[in-house]
Amino acid sequence: MTGISIEATQKGAFTVLSVHGPINSYTFTELQEKVMKHVGKADLAIDLSGVSSMTSAGIGVMLAAIEDAEAETKRIYIIAPSEVARLAIESTGFADRFPTLSSLKELPA
């Protein structure tokens, strides 16, 4: 089974988490732990361009991260979601709840 890899880097004020691989019920815990480590403490960008599949477990992590960031008035962006990630986000009917940028270059200062 393919695993997930999450790489954390810094870009300006943002901590960038670049996710590669599938986000499903086996892998979401790792993503959740990494996201929770950073969210609310710093501005966060989650790069989903390398996501190969994404189930509702992944949507749950994203939603919790967005709500946590909002509660702490920190900025959070989803970056360049892959086709499958974009479809998963759109399936919620609330794609506008997921602040999305098409590339890391668009991150505000």
């Binding site: 509702s56 949507i59 749950g60 992590v61 919790a64 991260a65 946590d68 509660a71 399936s91 919620t92």
Partner: peptide
């Protein structure tokens, strides 16, 4: 329910 919970 806990933050981030949703129902499809």
């Amino acid at each position: 329910l806990p933050r981030g919970t949703f129902f499809a």
